[in-house]
Design a protein around this nucleic acid. Structure first.
Length: 557
RNA sequence: GUCCCCGUCGUCUAGCCCGGCCUAGGACAUCGCCCUUUCACGGCGGUAACACGGGUUCAAAUCCCGUCGGGGACGCCA
């Protein structure tokens, strides 16, 4: 009882979260407008642009939010920052979820930031896939930004770093996508001649219009080790001798990921960066950027990677649609079950709980519960049925969540699937059917294979042999069906009455109950495995039942 | 190649920080039994792991070193 109440409360909560999300989306433009308005013109490192400056003349009206940088620890601000270069990936979804859990657990703010500075690779389709996936998960965010609308901030910070002498122009022509850089003799650190170029010479070439990238001047003498404490991986350090002079701005003046990400994290006041472990070694660069910009770096928490059964990072190219969030939706997963599953990959509540509601996850979540070893998503590469494709634990959890739903709720979720498959059912009948299949389906879409005989007029063809009961023959099947036809014509179609009448009939024929029920079950369901017989007959009704029994008798003759 | 990270049942994990309660616990999957009109649910039980080698210690899954194995990062991608 208590559990049900809890779940109901949870459902309401989820619904309101979704509403929030819609509200946020609709005020998106407003927010963005506010952010890029010319407010704090006296920001400390904003400076007038001169004609021979290397910066484009569009930064004049930009700002950094005052008080940027980590704010009080009480209401943490966290973000999820996908780049719209592909569909929403399960690994990204988990990153979103962990950020969301952290924010909700601590009463903080969840920011969604679209990292779209790579104009070449961005696609509309990808952007909508991300929103579609997040909408399905039913998790909300509180603020939303687009990096491409914040370029001025990125350039401004790049400029500040440059003015401090912590970055330099690199006039080396861009590499044309070759890969011979790695595998050579050790780490590449910088292009010869560029790091040492005098300011005057650099200014001259820039003024002459020569294209260049802006590189960070990694301080190798003064700061030989970069250190930070990761909330998951603990103390980390790396020698600056192993960090190359990475780019801040490309020669087309677009910021690189490192710059844009850090500039926005600083400007948006992010407190805790929770992201995939593939960024762990990038973090040293990020710390360099924050410090060069005069900002205290945020906290970092890196998440173990989600890997395929072959041990490699999940990728669509290699592993196919199982890495896309919408695949799970389309296969009939409940979003709450999917979220639950993802949470258990690399995190544990430490008390052996597995099936958890959203609220339970929020309550139990902490960064201390995150593991360090990569987690395998145990899917099968190519498979015939969804059940064989997906991680068995995900399927099991989904079944658990399905069973935990109220009949009403489950019926509501099943209805659209049934309708979309072209069947028409009334809500009342759907409710009856739902009761019968709730503990028998593992995916929502199983309703189509497990309850099809309730929806169709004509049963699909089945093998006559199925009608033959255990330790019986065709004659017995026929005898049973004829008896059933007779009995069912005059029995009340209610569970108890059917139970009594059919058992009595079995006795009359000198058969075991099972031998009596089997042919009837197959005749009305078209297969052996089905929900309990009497309830099924009750839902099907007398007309359909008799008609199908008649059909079976004819088949046998 | 260089740097970083990781290594408990097939898979997800508890235990590791603060050595003894660990003859290593739970879950999924798998196998068997029970319940039962089939299926499912449920119940009970089985198989199954501390990567390896050295230390330290009365005592190590837990601490130290090494080896091996796996992953990630090294772009004017993110």
């Amino acid at each position: 009882m208590e559990r049900e109440t809890q779940d109901d409360a949870e459902d309401k909560r989820d619904a309101s979260l979704i509403d929030d999300q819609v509200a946020v989306s609709s005020m998106k433009n407003q927010r963005l407008a506010v952010v890029s308005a010319p407010l704090y013109l006296d920001a400390p490192f904003l400076r007038p642009v001169t004609s021979n400056d290397w910066l484009p003349p569009m930064i004049d009206s930009v700002t950094t939010r005052s008080g940027a940088g980590p704010s009080s620890a009480r209401k943490p601000r966290v973000r999820f920052a996908p780049s719209p270069t592909g569909f929403l990936h399960v690994g990204s979804a988990r990153t979103f979820i962990f950020n969301w859990l952290y924010a909700r657990h601590n009463g903080g703010t969840m920011v969604l930031r679209i990292d779209d500075t790579d104009v070449e690779r961005n696609t509309e389709a990808s952007l909508s896939s991300i929103f579609e996936g997040l909408r399905w998960l039913g998790l909300s965010w509180d603020e939303e930004y687009k990096q491409s609308e914040r370029l001025a901030i990125h350039r401004q910070i790049a400029d500040a770093i440059f003015q401090k002498g912590l970055a330099y122009r690199d006039f080396t022509p861009a590499h044309a996508g070759d890969t011979e850089k790695s595998g050579g003799q050790g780490t590449w650190l910088f292009n010869p001649g560029m790091r040492e170029l005098s300011r005057a010479e650099s200014d001259r070439r820039a003024a002459a219009g020569e294209p260049f990238a802006l590189r960070f001047r990694v301080p190798r003498e003064t700061e030989p080790q970069i250190r930070f404490v990761d909330s998951v991986y603990g103390e980390q350090s790396k020698s600056t001798a192993d960090i190359e002079d990475f780019a801040l701005l490309r020669s087309d003046r677009m910021p690189t990921y490192h710059l844009a990400s850090c500039a926005d994290d600083a400007d948006l006041g992010m407190d805790h960066i929770i992201r995939g472990q593939d960024h762990l070694s990038n973090t040293f660069k990020h710390i360099l950027i924050f410090e060069a910009a005069g900002v205290t770096p945020p906290e970092f928490a890196h998440l173990p990677l989600l890997v395929a059964p072959d041990g490699t990072k999940l990728s669509k190219r290699r592993h196919g649609p199982v890495v896309s969030v919408t695949t799970y939706r389309d296969a009939g997963f409940l979003p709450e079950a999917f979220v639950n599953f993802l949470c258990l990959l690399g995190w544990s509540p430490k008390d052996n709980r597995e099936k958890m509601s959203r609220q339970e996850l929020i309550d139990a979540f902490s960064l201390q519960g995150i593991n360090r070893a990569n987690a395998v998503v145990n899917f099968k590469e190519p498979a015939a049925t969804p059940e064989e494709t997906f991680d068995p634990k995900a399927i099991w959890l989904n079944a658990e969540h399905i069973r935990a739903l109220s009949v009403d709720d489950l019926a509501d979720r099943l209805m659209p699937i049934v309708r979309e498959a072209g069947f028409t059912v009334g809500r009342c009948k759907m409710l009856q059917i739902t009761k019968l299949i709730q503990e028998r389906i593992k995916l929502l879409s199983d309703v189509l294979t497990g309850a099809d005989f309730f929806f169709v007029d004509q049963l699909p063809p089945y093998d006559n042999a199925e009608l033959v009961p255990q330790k019986g023959d065709v004659a017995m099947a026929e005898k049973v069906l004829k008896k059933a036809r007779e009995v069912l014509a005059r029995t009340d179609f209610k569970h108890d009455a059917l139970d009594q009448a059919l058992r009595a009939a079995a006795q009359e024929l000198g058969l075991k109950a099972g031998q009596m029920f089997q042919p009837i079950r197959v005749a009305v369901c078209g297969r052996k495995n089905a929900p309990p017989l009497f309830e099924t007959l009750e839902v099907l009704g007398r007309d359909t039942t008799l008609q199908r029994i008649e059909h079976a008798i004819q088949k046998l003759q």
